[in-house]
């Protein structure tokens, strides 16, 4: 039966999605590992492992959201998603006017959500494998009372180093992915 399925029904396979996703993941992991290594003074292997874990986690999260939300999306939006996935473009329906703004807004939301997930994920992952990147000793409350003026130089900066590093890593990898997507689109328009 699987063979029959392969011939008849399975004539359309998501092979391009798999290829593009693998490529983009490799690029993102390489870039983020470089940024994490440079900013957090981690070793080669740990930074690659962290970057791979974080990016795979956000990718899987994205897949779950897509697979879970697609069937319950309103029909107008659902057919636009189908159109984009199968034909690489939106078609004319009641939504097509506002889709550009929706895509840009979705991209921004995805950027900040992945940033937050990656920052939290890095904390959890390093805690889980026994080398926590943030120490969870509660800050002493007395110091806060005096505000910035009495702050001693040893005080931790307001933004932890790992959060900044993840923000930079995320920004770089998103830029690279965006560049690759634009290049692909440009190549397609030219050909």
């Amino acid at each position: 039966m699987p063979f029959e399925l392969l011939v008849d029904e399975a004539a359309v396979l998501p092979l391009r999605a798999i290829a593009f996703q693998s490529l983009l993941l490799l690029v993102a992991i390489a870039i983020e590992a470089g940024v994490l290594r440079g900013r957090l003074k981690l070793g080669f292997q740990p930074s690659i492992r962290y970057a791979a874990s974080l990016n795979l986690f956000t990718t899987v999260l994205g897949w779950f959201l897509f697979l879970g939300l697609e069937p319950v999306a309103p029909p107008l939006l659902r057919t636009q998603i189908i159109s984009y996935i199968l034909f690489g473009q939106f078609y004319n329906n009641g939504l097509s006017g506002s889709l550009g703004a929706v895509v840009i807004a979705t991209g921004l939301v995805i950027f900040f959500v992945t940033f937050w997930v990656k920052a939290k994920g890095l904390e959890w992952l390093t805690l889980e494998i026994g080398t926590p990147i943030v120490d969870y000793t509660p800050p002493t409350l007395t110091r806060r009372r005096y505000g910035y003026t009495r702050r001693t130089p040893q005080d931790p900066p307001t933004t932890p180093a790992h959060t900044l590093a993840v923000l930079h890593a995320n920004a770089w990898s998103f830029s690279a992915i965006l560049l690759l997507l634009v290049l692909r689109y440009g190549l397609e328009v030219l050909s």
């Binding site: 359309v12 092979l15 391009r16 593009f20 996935i85 199968l86 473009q89």
Partner: peptide, 23 residues
């Protein structure tokens, strides 16, 4: 999707970034 909209199968997916028609 192809069960819901069988007409889609007879189209061309050359510009898709996700799927490939193998037959």
């Amino acid at each position: 999707w192809f069960q819901d909209y069988p007409t889609l199968l007879s189209d061309d997916f050359g510009r898709s970034g996700f799927v490939l028609k193998i037959a």
